[in-house]
Every structure is written in C-alpha cells, then in structure tokens.
C-alpha cells in the first residue's frame, strides 16, 4: 500500500511535477531544476546561504559514545529530579517570587559578566552591568528586584566561553558534562575560568563562612531549577517530534552558542 502511494506520488513529482512543486523560481534555480533529474540539489543551497559553510553534515562530536551515555544519565536525573522539582517550584511560587530568585542569581553573576564584557572590549555593556549591580544590590534589596531594568539598564550575559569565541576560538569537540549538560571543549574551559574568577567563593572564604560550598551549591541548584521551570514547555516541544533528541540538542546548543558569540547580529 505504501509502495503504491509512493509510486503515485512519484509520478506527481517527476517529470511533470517540478513546475508544480517549485513554482516559478529565478533563472538560476530554473537551471538547477532542469538539472534536477541528474545533478539534484545544485543551486538549491543558494537558498540557504550562510548555512553552506562546508560542515553541513553531522556536528563535530568525536566523543559521541561517552557523550550519549552522560546525556542519558542527565536525562534520567532530569526526569527523576529536576523536572519534578521545577514543576513544583513553578506551582508553589508565584511569578513574582520566581522572578526574584532569578534576579538574585543574575545579580550574583554580575562580576563575572562584567569581567567578560571588559575582555570582549564591550565597554558600554560592562559599565551598564556595573551600574546594574550597584543599583540592584542597594535599591533592589540585594538583587531581589531588578530596579535597574526599569531605569533602562538591561540585563545581558557573557561568559568566558563566549569571550574565547569572540577571539576566534572554535568550540572544538562537543561535550556533554554531567549535571551541566551540553558544552564543548571551549565552553567547558570557559566554565572553569568563570568559576575561578567568580568572587563569591573568595568572599565567603574571607568571611569565614563555614557552609561556603553548600551556599554555592544551593545557588547553582536554585539557578538550575529556575531555568528548568522557565523551559518546561520548550523542552516538551523539542522532544515532541524529535527522532534523535541527543543530536537535536547538540545542534541547538552549537547554534545557540554561535549566535550568542555574534550577539545575535547578522553575519
């Protein structure tokens, strides 16, 4: 039955088909069409410039076997712990409280963002981040309220992986980190540098707070739950029609990072 359907469709597609399927393109595409019977998609790639940069097949992932294993582990953790925690968190806390959680976490990230903006030569953004930190830490009650945003100082995020990217570093092999999820060699190094320059561990240390590691871990966990809670539908949506969720997430991550490094600007 399926073969029959395919056969019928086949007649529709060619040789009379192309005029119906590919309505009135420019001459160059017309040429490609007439060659279509033999050469196939030559000329077609013109429709997707920028995408055609040579590496159009699979993403660079030499550690795929290990990555897939860690990905499955993370997925299991997500299903068992993170997703339920995020759903509960979203159910229990009103939006304003959840926004406060995010605001505090963002405010604590300000020093790292500031440093990376300086390194990327984004002086205006860096000073904006500094002003934001000053306003939100005081008027915003230790970051609970994003007052600076209503003054027109918008939040923007940078990390050391992006800084390396701005200086031309390629992501290198794709990596999946336990707990943290998608990354790359470049971004994993960036993550390490960011945690080294993060002042709060030194601050807690200097203040002789005994539970310093617990506090830092709690910050990380809360940030993760908040982020997950904001993306419950998005993740479901992404899984819905995916035939290889691992490969999909890999592509999404790499594209997203490339876009962040270019700061969403056109090429």
């Amino acid at each position: 039955m399926l073969a029959l359907l395919a056969g019928c469709a086949g007649e529709a597609v060619r040789p009379a088909g192309p005029t119906v399927l590919y309505p009135a393109p420019s001459d160059s595409v017309q040429l490609a069409q007439s060659q279509d019977e033999t050469v196939d998609d030559s000329g077609f790639e013109d429709l997707f410039p920028g995408e055609d940069d040579g590496d159009l097949e699979e993403d660079f992932d030499p550690f795929e076997t290990v990555n897939r294993f860690i990905f499955a582990f993370n997925e299991a953790l997500d299903v068992l712990i993170l997703q339920p925690a995020a759903a509960t968190y979203r159910f229990l806390l009103p939006e304003i409280a959840r926004d406060s959680v995010r605001n505090v976490i963002r405010n604590l990230k300000a020093p790292v963002i500031f440093a990376n903006e300086l390194w990327q030569g984004k002086d205006d953004e860096a000073s904006e981040t500094l002003v934001r930190f000053g306003i939100n830490s005081t008027l915003g009650l230790a970051g609970l309220i994003d007052v600076a945003d209503s003054f027109g100082y918008e939040y923007h995020s940078e990390d050391f992986g992006q800084t390396l990217g701005v200086y031309g570093a390629q992501p290198g092999p794709y990596l999946v980190l336990p707990l943290f999820g998608p990354s790359s060699v470049r971004d994993a190094i960036g993550r390490g540098v960011d945690s080294l320059i993060d002042p709060w561990s030194y601050v807690l240390n200097a203040a002789d707070v005994e539970e310093d590691t617990e506090i830092l871990r709690a910050r990380m966990a809360l940030g993760g739950i908040d982020l997950r809670a904001r993306n419950i539908e998005t993740v479901e949506e992404l899984k819905r029609d995916s035939v290889d969720f691992y490969a999909r997430v890999r592509s999404l991550y790499l594209q997203l990072r490339r876009s962040e490094i270019k700061d969403g600007e056109d090429e």
Binding site: L47, F48, E51, L56, E57, E58, D59, S242, V243, D244, Y246, A247, R248, R250, S251, L252, Q255, L256, R258, S259, E260, K262, G264
Partner: peptide
Amino acid sequence: ILDVVAEGVSMVLTLRKEYATV
C-alpha cells in the same frame, strides 16, 4: 517560508543535523 530562525537557532539546520545523525 523556507526557514524559521528563533533566537539564532535555525529550524532547517537543526533538522538537517538531527536527520544526518539518524
């Protein structure tokens, strides 16, 4: 419509990469 790019992520490129792996 040929492609939808949301926040820098292209639909067709994502599908292409995913399908290539499959």
